[in-house]
C-alpha cells in the first residue's frame, strides 16, 4: 500500500504542492473509500486537487458545479422528453403498439446522464468533483448524502442503478453557509489554507520553472506581504501565478526596476477598486522592496 508521502510526491510530479495535512487527508480518503471535504478560501487550489488526482490515477474527472437552485434533473438524470415525443409521433405512423413504444422510450437510450449518474456508471472509478457544495440548497445536500452513502440511484421507470465502480469523491466548500453535520461526519476533512512562503515558492517553481530564483522569491514575498494587508479580496495562488507569468512575460528581472510596470501588473492581484486604493503604488513599491 502506498503511503501518504508517496501520494504527496506523485502530486508534486503533477505540479501540485500539497501540504502534509492535505496529502494525509487525501490518502486516508482514498484508503477508506470515503469522500473528502476540502474547505478554504477561494483560490487556494481546492478544485485543483481533483484535477491532479485524476491525472495521477489516469481517470476521468467528472465535475458537478453546485449553485443555488441546483436540482435532481441537473445533477442526476433527466429523460430526453423531446426525443421521446418524436419517437411517439414516428411510431404512430409505423403502427407500433403502445406497449412497445413505452418500453422503447423509457430505455436508457432516452436517458440523459447528468454528472452523478455518469460518475457511478464508469468502468474505471472516476474522480467526482462536487464543487462549492455550500452553494447548493440544503435539500440537494440531503439527497447527495444518500447517493454518497449507497452509491446507487433509483430511476422509477428503469429501476435502481447500482454503481459499477465507486468514484473518488471530492467536495469543496468555501463557507457560503454552514454544511450539515451529517455531511461533515461522512467526509474526511481537510482545511486548505494559503500556503507558507516556502510552499508557495515550490508551487511557483513547479508551475513556472523558467522564472529565476531571485525573481520568484521576490514575487512570492510580495504576494505574501499583500495578503497581510487588509483587503476585500485576498489574492489566491492562481492570482500569484498570473502575476508571475505577467512579470516574467514582460521580461523583468527585478520587481523594483520599474514602478510603472509594477503598477500595471498590480491589477492582476488586486481586483476591486477599494483594494487598489488600499495599496497605492508607493505602498506596493515598499512591499516589493522589502520582499527582495
Amino acid at each position: 500500500m502506498s503511503s501518504w508521502s508517496t501520494l504527496q510526491a506523485e502530486m508534486a510530479e503533477e505540479g501540485y504542492v500539497a501540504s502534509d495535512d492535505l496529502a494525509m487527508a487525501l490518502h486516508i480518503a482514498l484508503s477508506l473509500g470515503r469522500p473528502l471535504l476540502l474547505e478554504g478560501a477561494a483560490g487556494v487550489g481546492k478544485t485543483e486537487v481533483a484535477r491532479v488526482l485524476s491525472a495521477i490515477r489516469d481517470t476521468d474527472l467528472i465535475r458537478l458545479q453546485c449553485y443555488e437552485g441546483l436540482d435532481a434533473a441537473h445533477a442526476i438524470y433527466e429523460w430526453n422528453y423531446q426525443r421521446q415525443l418524436l419517437a411517439i409521433r414516428a411510431s404512430a405512423e409505423e403502427g407500433e403498439t403502445g406497449r412497445a413504444v413505452e418500453s422503447r422510450i423509457f430505455s436508457e437510450e432516452y436517458l440523459l446522464e447528468r454528472p452523478l449518474l455518469r460518475a457511478i456508471r464508469q468502468e474505471i472509478p472516476p474522480v467526482l468533483l462536487i464543487d462549492e457544495i455550500d452553494r447548493a440548497d440544503e435539500e440537494f445536500e440531503a439527497y447527495l448524502l444518500e447517493v454518497l452513502s449507497d452509491f446507487q440511484i433509483t430511476v422509477p421507470e428503469l429501476g435502481t442503478i447500482k454503481a459499477v465502480s465507486r468514484p473518488i469523491v471530492i467536495l469543496t466548500a468555501n463557507g457560503t453557509r454552514d454544511l450539515s453535520d451529517a455531511l461533515r461526519r461522512r467526509c474526511i476533512y481537510a482545511y486548505v489554507d494559503y500556503p507558507e512562503r516556502n510552499a508557495e515558492l515550490a508551487i511557483l517553481n513547479a508551475r513556472c520553472p523558467e522564472i529565476e530564483d531571485r525573481l520568484s522569491a521576490q514575487i512570492v514575498g510580495f504576494v505574501q506581504a499583500i495578503r497581510r494587508e487588509e483587503l476585500e479580496k485576498t489574492p489566491g495562488i492562481a492570482e500569484m501565478l498570473d502575476f508571475a507569468a505577467a512579470v516574467s512575460g514582460l521580461g523583468i528581472a527585478d520587481l523594483n526596476d520599474d514602478p510603472a510596470v509594477l503598477g500595471a501588473t498590480l491589477a492582476i492581484l488586486l481586483k476591486t477598486r477599494a483594494d487598489r486604493d488600499a495599496v497605492p503604488l508607493e505602498v506596493a513599491q515598499r512591499l516589493a522592496g522589502k520582499a527582495a
Partner: peptide, 29 residues
C-alpha cells in the same frame, strides 16, 4: 481503519490521520 493506512507508530502521522477523520470544521481542525 485510518490508522491502519498510515504508520501509526509515528505520532505526527497518527495525529494527521486522526485529524482528517475526526475534525469536521476549521475550528475543530
Amino acid at each position: 481503519s485510518a490508522l491502519t493506512c498510515v504508520d501509526a507508530a509515528k505520532p505526527e502521522d497518527a495525529r494527521r490521520a486522526l485529524r482528517a477523520v475526526c475534525a469536521g470544521t476549521k475550528e475543530e481542525a
